[in-house]
Design a protein around this nucleic acid. Structure first.
Ligand code: MN
Ligand code: MN
Ligand code: MN
Ligand code: MN
Lengths: 222, 222
DNA sequence: TTATTTTGTTAGTATCATCTAACTTGTTAA
DNA sequence: TTAACAAGTTAGATGATACTAACAAAATAA
């Protein structure tokens, strides 16, 4: 059996390693706001359970089994977020904290039902892919809006990472997933961008924001 | 702060005391399948927190505050059960275990939303009343079907206590809440009853079943 | 390359939630 | 009314999950 606490460690490790393939004790410590010695002993415990690859002073990795387990927790998290938004009417900025708790519910039929009622969605409300029931996750090949050039026209696909404040900001600008963004101008000094979309003309977005908006160039194959 | 574990103790104590007003360490121990010394020290801890009235060798009671807290957990449990049945399509025999977990979610807006989507229901899928947001619970004045007499016609209002097996059995007999039950015959030997309802004529129910079906005599005021 | 800082580890402590063993108190049946 | 049994309590142990203090290793800066 795996505890709620252990599940949270696995999930954080999954997210941290999804970038570089490995993570440090320090990274996890900061992410979870838990002191390093606690993280250290938890990593040893998860290594005992064959979920984490631990060697003294070396970066941490998830085992194959650990990766699958983490993906299944993330599946529950993202299905929940989608359900809260689509079926219960929550805003995309208000679902993360609830999902953070519900992801630990042990009742496969509950999440299967959500999945079914949602029509087996592929992404969550922030554009992140939902792992399938085997823990496989589709890799998007989106790029950051901030890496695009003037004149380009792209589709807004995901927010990552998506903090509550950022999501609120995007809502206030009526910036929602799926919109066509036209890049009008890029300020060389601070990297802020002027874009047009929907019925908005020449909206200014800071580079801090543009860094977190993921877009696709060619209209996404359906 | 109150832990999930503590919440489960409070809830059990609430349910046990709703009958006689007090409960024993032994009762709780059996109900939760946790040894008496563990229950004993938990009761002392909850007494520290002013949620339980504890005196050595005396029966246990909830404090006013404890009673309210317990009622609010039960509110979350029953709203969840109702939501699962009404909005997600679960059968009434499959919702208790999920609700047992979801009742511990700390997110008032989540349960408020359920309440709203359900149209502020007064009872759960098994006919038990849902406490209001202040922890007040309406008292039904139902009687057991087994206490009724031949010839009477009553309305099926609740199942209590409602085990999965019993609920499955009732489903198999198409016995659902709100039905008019006509008592045709009572077997003096074992107390089993012959009743008619809906399109069923002279169905036989054991006294074990009849003991757990709550009914109202006069058609319930709407 | 040495000194400093950051990161990781070990050791020891604390709290929560559980247990078993042993003892005490209360209840019930001879 | 006492002897037996049931219920309640105390004491002590354990595993999970956190912490701080102190030390060791690795990375970085001087
Ligand atoms: Mn999230
Ligand atoms: Mn979580
Ligand atoms: Mn229930
Ligand atoms: Mn529970």
């Amino acid at each position: 059996m795996i505890s709620q606490t252990e599940e949270n460690y696995l999930k954080v490790l999954y997210n941290l390693t999804s970038l570089k393939g490995e993570a440090s004790v320090n990274d996890i410590s900061k992410q979870l706001d838990i002191k390093m010695p606690t993280v250290n002993s938890m990593m040893k415990r998860l290594a005992e359970k064959k979920l984490v690859v631990y060697e003294s002073y070396k970066p941490l990795k998830l085992s194959v089994e650990g990766k699958k387990l983490a993906a299944l927790i993330i599946r529950k998290h993202r299905l929940t977020e989608m359900y809260l938004v689509e079926k219960m009417g929550f805003g995309w900025e208000n679902v993360h904290n609830i999902a953070e708790q519900i992801e630990h519910i042990q009742a496969p039929e509950f999440f299967d039902k959500m999945d079914e009622l949602l029509g087996f969605p592929k992404v969550d409300p922030h554009g992140s892919p939902i792992p399938d029931a085997d823990g496989n996750i589709a890799s998007d090949n989106y790029l950051k809006l901030s890496d695009c050039k003037v004149g380009e026209s792209v589709t807004f696909m995901a927010v990552q990472p998506s903090s509550e404040d950022l999501l609120k900001f995007l809502t206030s600008r009526e910036l929602s997933l799926g919109l066509e963004l036209k890049i009008k101008q890029i300020e060389p000094f601070d990297g802020s961008m002027v874009i047009s979309y929907a019925n908005k003309e020449n909206e200014m977005l800071s580079s801090k924001v543009c860094d977190k908006l993921l877009v696709s160039k060619k209209s996404k194959k359906k």
